[in-house]
Design a protein around this nucleic acid. Structure first.
Length: 558
RNA sequence: GCGCCCGUAGCUCAGGCGGAUAGAGCAACGGAUUUCUAAUCCGUUGGUCGCAGGUUCGAGUCCUGCCGGGCGCGCCA
């Protein structure tokens, strides 16, 4: 497996400063300068060493430059020029041969380019959406679904082993309320006077559910006992709504690897075992007839109740056991996506994870902020119980799956986001996703045109193509962009932010469209045509891979 | 009151671990197509990075305090 140009430059820099920096060696940071006069890559390595060890940054930079120039693996093959600038930056100008070699590497490795170096990383469980089965998925769940699924793809690509997990809360007070609300709608169909409680579920889907039961069972449930009927409608509603959730997710290109149902989990005995485990660590006590968990000693604001004085468990109790189970299944790291209404939950869950004996680094709750929806200037209220909400289904039907997923993935996860539905629909063609997809379609189109414009011409194998013919500034910039893909994946995975992939893709697309406009690929010159087709193919590989990380299609034509 | 998140162009948002002259899209205006897809490209206009201090060679980025917005603070789920 050949390493990328950036990896090779990093290791050469590491070698060059070994005698200068001492131990521990400072971390090598390579950045892409805004101004092309500052080189293709720049490092503040000398400034860092000067800060830590003392000395003048520019002098240290000179020493590093001398060492680099003496390194025969570095100076002729990788870099053609090294400059010291400003307070002590080292600016590197990459040799054309090195960039051409990078393109050849992309073409030979294809979909595996940059992905193989870090295989065998940690096992991660990523839990997201986990919406209660009391109604259809909303826009808020859609954001979690898009971000979570994309992140899972990105982490996998970065070499982690990822399991996508959905926790289905299919029992408890809300589920009973759901069943009761459905039963009341069912009774209404038969002309009975039936009130939905204030706290009950009022969405139109409840009526639809009741009607389907009527069609199947007639008036059977009018004659059943109250508790029996509520239990039936609860079950029935949960199953139907869950099926709807699965369908919505599938159509949104999201498939979970594993579902945990609270009902099954609570029957497993693991909750009792977990409470006993905590009791064994002297973290459980009784007060006012309730059972409490000493979370305050573990960083929470106050202690929390696990079992109420009426004997019912709080929501927290199964959640602790559930998280214990995650770690016992062998995950090195657990990532939870929660809505902003759960951020008060962070401290107590962290406390619980500590109590269970797992380090903080292994548990990462991520708060996915809400999207505030507008229709024009009108802010839309979002309440599942009152039945006033925009569903994910409506959103993806109106805006399209690709555009919706891309739109959500593009926003930083922890940022609030204002989303005008009217605007999003009206301008759907201006969505940046089309800008990126268009790159793929354009390259595909070039392949179709190749035979038409050059009958009898066939592309040679890429290893026989003369990439040294790619001498234009735009071509060089484009190859540099391509070579940044592994870095974009790595940074996106580290930050748990898919939006870094979107940023990268849009920059790459801009570089491609610019190059495409300036330089005709299919020309009289067979060698140049082959070289430029190779570059286009490199772009197609990266764009296809990048879009796949976002769960967005790479269309052959648009 | 306490806690978490946010505040960057008219709008929506980017700005790895502090780095060189703060970016993109949309909107507005002006150009480019006998050419591989114009869903594209080029240019112009647009900024007190909420405010005030601090840290240092250097701050949109780190620290402190304010201001403004969202959310959470229950033996609810």
């Amino acid at each position: 497996m050949r390493t990328t140009i950036r990896d090779r430059i990093e290791s050469a820099l590491g070698e060059s400063c070994r005698g200068i920096a001492g131990d521990p060696a400072p971390q090598i940071v390579l950045e892409t300068p805004r101004d092309p006069r500052h080189g293709d890559l720049a490092t503040n390595l000398a400034l860092r060493i000067a800060r830590e060890k003392g000395g003048k940054a520019r002098e240290i930079a000179e020493q590093i430059a001398v060492a680099l120039k003496g390194n025969s693996n570095f100076c002729p093959p990788l870099c053609e020029r090294i400059e010291i600038a400003g307070p002590g930056f080292i600016n590197l100008f990459i040799a054309p041969q090195a960039l051409q070699g990078e393109l050849a590497l992309i073409l030979s490795e294809g979909d595996r380019y940059g992905a193989s170096a870090r295989e065998g990383r940690a096992k991660i469980q990523l839990e997201f959406v986990s919406a209660n089965p009391t109604g259809p998925l909303t826009v808020a769940h859609g954001r979690q679904a898009a971000v979570g699924d994309s992140l899972a793809r990105i982490l996998s690509r970065a070499g982690y082993s990822v399991m996508k997990e959905y926790y289905l809360n299919d029992r408890g007070k809300q589920i009973r309320l759901l069943g009761h609300s459905t039963l009341q709608r069912y009774r209404e169909i038969f002309g009975q006077k039936a009130e939905i409680p204030d706290e009950g579920y009022k969405g139109s889907y409840i009526k639809d559910l009741a009607e389907r039961v009527r069609v199947r069972d007639g008036d059977l449930w009018l004659r059943a006992g109250e508790e029996e009927a509520i239990a039936f409608f609860s079950n029935c509603a949960v199953e139907e709504i869950t099926a709807g959730i699965v369908k919505d997710l599938a159509d949104f290109h999201v498939a979970f690897d594993h579902w945990t149902r609270e009902r099954e989990f609570s029957e497993s005995g693991k909750i009792e075992t977990c409470i006993e485990f905590l009791r064994g660590r002297d973290l459980i006590y009784e007060k006012d007839g309730a059972i409490w968990f000493r979370t305050e000693s573990l960083g929470d604001d106050k202690d929390r109740v696990l079992v109420k004085s009426d004997g019912e468990r709080t929501y927290f109790a199964p959640d602790i056991a559930y998280h214990r189970d995650k770690f016992e299944q062998g995950f090195d790291r657990v990532i939870d996506f929660w809505g902003p209404d759960h951020h008060g939950y962070v401290a107590r869950m962290r406390a619980a994870v500590r109590a269970l004996g797992y380090s903080d680094a292994r548990f990462t709750p991520v708060i996915v902020q809400l999207s505030t929806l507008f229709r024009g200037a009108q802010k839309l209220s979002m309440s599942t119980r009152a039945g006033e909400f925009i569903t994910l289904r409506e959103l993806m039907d109106e805006v399209g799956v690709d555009a919706t997923r891309y739109f959500f993935a593009r926003m930083r996860t922890e940022s609030h986001l204002n989303f005008d539905l009217d605007l999003a629909k009206k301008r759907s063609n201006d969505n940046p996703v089309y800008y990126v997809q268009y790159v793929h379609a354009r390259v595909c189109s070039m392949y179709k045109k190749l035979n038409e414009k050059k009958p009898g011409f066939s592309l040679p194998a890429w290893e026989n193509v003369r990439f040294d013919l790619l001498r234009e500034r735009e071509e060089r910039d484009l190859i540099k962009r391509l070579s940044d893909f592994p870095l974009a994946v790595e940074q996106s995975a580290a930050a748990l932010e898919p939006n870094l992939i979107c940023n990268y893709m849009e920059d790459l697309a801009a570089a491609f469209h610019q190059c495409y406009t300036e330089h005709t690929v299919i020309s009289e010159d067979d060698s140049l045509t082959a070289a430029r087709m190779g570059l286009a193919e490199g772009v197609r590989i990266i764009v296809r891979n990048g879009l796949d990380l976002l769960g967005v299609a790479a269309p052959e034509s648009m």
